[in-house]
Design a protein around this nucleic acid. Structure first.
Lengths: 348, 348
DNA sequence: TATTTTTACGCAACCGATTGCAATTGTTGT
DNA sequence: ACAACAATTGCAATCGGTTGCGTAAAAATA
């Protein structure tokens, strides 16, 4: 048992007095191999503890049954759910998933893209880093017919598959919900990003909703953040609460920000939702834990992951170089919970 | 640009009228190659868009500079921080990390272990699935001299590297903290798991702390959960709150459980920490967001990840088959926050 | 029984980088 | 000018499956 060398098909071939080609075929139920031989080979392989060397197979066939996932981080609930969805689908078709984190750094994204290519992944699913401004590092995939799917934070000028939600309409829905709950002075947080324009889209929805309901768009109510963090959220919230008159609602394009606003409000003695209603985005786990429960917009992370993986696998099967790189839009919904409710007012 | 074939060292060799061996050596600054040639080769490689084929190198050298990480899920804050630590260290030494999730299923763990082996990872870092009762599927690594490091949820009878915290002493510290805050009837939640004995250890610390302070250990205050989820936490909390006399403190071996207890208490009008003090475990992000802030035990996830990766890399470098598989213990601390404070009592 | 068709399996090249050893060129000493 | 040696580069095998093509044996058909 000590210092075993890997068992190869050569070892099996020798033991059974067969050619390696026969072993190889038998192991994958090739039709030209007799059932008797297949059984014999499989049994012996099992006995000898044979484990196929993926590298050899991948090198020869130039395909690895591996999906590379390149995302900013695995710690965000949305992204870990995305991974979950990818994995579930991948596993069904016997694909391996390899995950790399760009940490929202352009440089790292470039390196990891090269690394994925170097590892000859069969397909790539990517959500862009915040920093990323150009996408040249993805050409290596496109040029070599390796299916590439962008998810959520996607470039708008790249001819490849995309799986997204309609951020504009989600922003519109969120804002409209607040209006319907009686808000007339609704604030909004946003963040700048050229390529992943999802915050801009949400903001566009926010503005349109206001306009459609004849509510003036006030610049002081729209705060642009450097980073979507709890700390920046607190800062922005305080700025908002210092305004007079104070806003009576907030559409935060992320639950972390929404939570920071709720907490800040509480600290300042501002009652949520009575004096200040909040709706977030993503339906992160925390939205159900915080008090009051956070109204939010669903973001179908797992579904998006599944969809992206399915696109890759389907594309790999048909292997026809379709030029039709469709964009998949998934649905979002308003999840009305306590933080935006006007029911409480009646009770009191 | 259409339908490029991968550029190989053969292409470079042909272009420069050199042998592939020269190219290969030049690309990694081999001392037998002249500076002039090295420069020329690197320049041409760059121009031609050469990306080394990891598969070929891995196949030939039977090593891949890849660390396989096999964990229950990426969605738990502790585990995603662990990954983060692993990646930071791995990247410094130019290792690639491939992550697989067992979803706490034994069967999946077995499959993914095989998959990692099949991919010829250079080393493996694993935190066991809840379900796992035997570790035979890790022999393939041990037998083939592939460094294996268990982290956090580790088997106790496996001669390999382990990176853990001292769960016993952490449990002791947590309980002692509550006692010092004035609690005299401290409840505890726990979960069963044969291999990953960390909950048992924490419980052992809890019991010892009580004994050392002459507090009777009451069975009704110790609730064993099937799963460490918010829902099960709520159920258990309600059971505890129905007791008379009610416990005045809780040591929950996880922040999710602690949060569920806090929320349940609030719902029932029980004041935290005045009537009921809580300390959790892990220092998850939510512990700082919930109101009142949650006292907890730090769990140095990122450090553990770094330590584990360092062990792998160091071991791979020296490549001497040390039989000394040390266990690394990392430190934990009590993080006293609002949920266990007795300061508030004085204020009121 | 002779011939065609199936069935089952073997041969050998191939994927791309690595590396021990041989070969070539250049340099130094006498 | 020539041996001795160092500096460079080339040759060819190797890692372990995969696959097109060829062939022998068994079965079907004439």
């Amino acid at each position: 048992m000590e210092e075993n060398k890997h068992v190869t098909i050569y070892d099996i071939a020798e033991r059974l007095n067969l050619a390696t080609s026969t072993i190889s075929r038998a192991l994958k139920d090739h039709h030209t191999i007799s059932d008797k031989t297949i059984k014999k080979v499989k049994k012996t392989a099992e006995e000898m503890g044979f484990v196929p060397n993926t590298l050899a197979a991948g090198l020869r066939g130039n395909k690895t049954k591996t999906i590379g996932v390149l995302i900013p981080t695995v710690t965000q609930p949305f992204l870990s759910s995305l991974i979950s969805g990818i994995e579930i689908t991948a596993q069904k078709s016997d694909y391996t998933v390899i995950i790399m984190q760009s940490h929202d750094s352009y440089e790292e994204e470039v390196n990891m893209a090269k690394s994925l290519y170097s590892n000859r992944v069969s397909g790539v699913i990517c959500s862009l880093a915040m920093e990323t401004r150009d996408t040249a590092h993805f050409h290596q995939f496109s040029n070599n017919n390796i299916p590439l799917v962008f998810v959520d934070r996607v470039p708008k000028d790249y001819n490849t598959f995309r799986v997204v939600i309609d951020n504009y309409s989600a922003g519109y829905k969120a804002t409209k919900h607040l209006i319907e709950q009686g808000c007339i002075r609704i604030a909004h947080l946003t963040a700048g990003s050229e390529l992943g324009n999802l915050y801009n889209e949400r903001k566009r929805g926010y503005i349109e909703a206001l306009k459609d309901h004849n509510i003036p768009v006030e610049e002081e109510l729209i705060i642009s953040l450097n980073s979507v963090t709890y700390e920046d959220g607190v800062k922005a919230s305080n700025t908002l609460f210092d305004l007079k008159p104070m806003p009576d609602g907030l559409f935060a394009p992320g639950d972390i920000l929404a939570v920071s606003a709720v907490q800040t409000a509480k600290k300042r003695g501002i009652k949520v939702p009575e004096e200040f209603k909040v709706i977030g985005f993503n339906n992160d786990p925390i939205s159900q834990i915080i008090d009051p429960n956070l109204s939010t917009i669903t973001h179908p992370a797992e579904k998006m992951g599944k969809a992206a993986a399915e696109i890759i696998i389907k594309n790999l099967k048909s292997s026809k170089n379709d030029d039709a790189k469709e964009i998949t839009f998934l649905n979002t919904e308003v999840l009305a919970r306590e933080s935006s409710s006007n029911e409480l007012l009646k009770d009191i």
